[in-house]
Simulated scan of single mutants.
Amino acid sequence: MTQNQNRLTIASYFLLALLTASLHAQAEKPESKSLRADLPYQVKKSDPVNHEVEFSVVVTPPYHCKVLKVWVPVPQTDAAQEITASKFTTFPQQVSPQISNEPVYDNRFAYFEFHDPHGAQIITHRFRARAWNLHWNMNPAHVTRVEQWPSSFEPYLKPQTVAQPEQFQQVIQNINAGFQNKGPGLIGAMNWIDRNLTYDHIHASLQADANHAFEQRRGHCSDYHGLCATMGRALGYPTRVTYGLALYPKNSPSHCKMEAYLPPYGWISFDLSETQKLAKQIQSDKELTAAQKTSLTQAARERTLSGFRENSWLLLTRGTDYQLAPPALKPVRVVRTAYVEADGEILPEPDPANIKKREFSWMTSHRYTADKPFKKPFKDLSTLNAD
């Protein structure tokens, strides 16, 4: 073989190596390299607060119950919150929990099984939580459209069946038409919900039910965000309902938000119901001028639409329609504070914020102690000036 032939052969091998490396790089760097369902929050954090949490579930089993089963969601550390010193105790029966994660959304649960319980059983979870104010500063003009989402997003794109499909599709078409080349249609869905839904704790599903919200045009936080999540998926965006705890005294400690995956920002948290309530508070404030009301209402809505989560809210669960770990009688729609079964029957879920309720099969009690005073952004108007 001549010297030129050697050089040609070496060059060929080199080009082949480059081509092979390029092909491998393409195979290893699909769309999912930048679009990841497990992407940590890409967010600006500020004003951390440390909370000492003592959270109890008081369960009253039926008379002569043989087996009482209770699942309690366990908060996890992530990029937005830190959980330490977690410990469960029970009274009067001493039962150790089984801790495990369900496979779809990786939610963690503490499972308790009481045999022949006599009277109420109290499960108490004590832990420390560090939470921040979270600002995504999302600019709708910078959100990119995705034609084909990686398979890891499948659980977040699965639509909820809507009982009024024609009316629902008409709303989605109108939102799409109104937001062509004006940023993500999800913003249009949020605006539609703000215009069309009324906050109502008595007529609420407690299950993030899009059908309830769309048909009744009312509900509480889970209905607002369940419908918005369904609309977001119909518009082509991965979404998930998130349930957590408001870390200050409330009759109903649970509160729901919604997250949507908007490239290049990743997962962003939105709270539509609390923003609507805040806007109504502003409009009814007799000490504010008309100009101040307009300015503050706009600031409240802009804060929400840019992505915001407060340092007095703690994430417990993500997602809808999944099987608990260990499995329950059937998959759950959501878990707010606990899920309970007694002798093979699901105990009804309480709504302590419903003033007409007088009977509960179980209830929560809770105490939170913060290391410093903090403002409630959806109640304190001065937080809008600060933002």
Rank of each mutant, 00 (worst) to 15 (best):
R195Q: 15
G226C: 01
W71M: 11
T289N: 06
S22Y: 14
K158Y: 10
D223E: 10
T89Q: 11
K356H: 13
P238E: 05
T198D: 04
C228A: 13
A37F: 09
V59Q: 02
Y41N: 10
K375P: 00
N133H: 09
Q173N: 14
C65R: 03
Q281A: 07
E147T: 14
H115F: 11
P92V: 01
D387R: 10
W149C: 02
E274T: 09
N181D: 12
G244F: 06
A279M: 10
F308G: 04
A234K: 01
K376P: 05
P264S: 12
L272K: 07
L329Q: 13
A342L: 05
L227W: 04
H203F: 11
Q164E: 15
A110R: 12
N50I: 09
L314M: 11
A291D: 14
S100A: 15
S56M: 10
D285K: 05
P326N: 05
D194Q: 10
P352S: 12
C256M: 12
L206V: 11
L296E: 08
S32Q: 05
Q169D: 13
R130Y: 02
N311Q: 11
T289M: 00
Q160P: 00
F270K: 06
G266E: 09
V104N: 06
T144R: 11
Q148R: 06
P155W: 02
P326I: 01
H118Q: 14
P373R: 07
Q76H: 02
A120T: 11
P253Q: 06
S86Y: 08
S34M: 06
L314D: 01
S312A: 07
A234F: 06
T124L: 04
A325C: 06
M231R: 01
Y243L: 14
R217W: 03
Y199M: 02
Q26E: 14
A234I: 11
W136G: 07
K286H: 10
S284A: 13
E259R: 08
H24G: 03
D38Q: 08
S222W: 09
L186G: 08
S151C: 01
V67F: 03
L305D: 09
S312F: 02
L39S: 14
N139I: 04
L314S: 05
I122W: 06
A210D: 01
S273D: 05
G236V: 03
G183M: 02
T2G: 15
L235A: 03
Q207R: 13
D351F: 10
L329M: 13
L245A: 06
K356T: 13
Y63E: 10
V95M: 01
T124S: 12
L296D: 09
Q170A: 13
N191H: 11
A325G: 00
W192Y: 13
W132N: 05
K286M: 06
D223H: 09
E274F: 10
L15S: 14
V335P: 02
V59P: 01
S312N: 13
T239G: 00
Q170H: 14
K66I: 09
F308R: 07
K330W: 08
K286I: 11
S284T: 09
T364I: 06
E147N: 14
L278M: 13
D380Y: 07
S34P: 00
H203P: 01
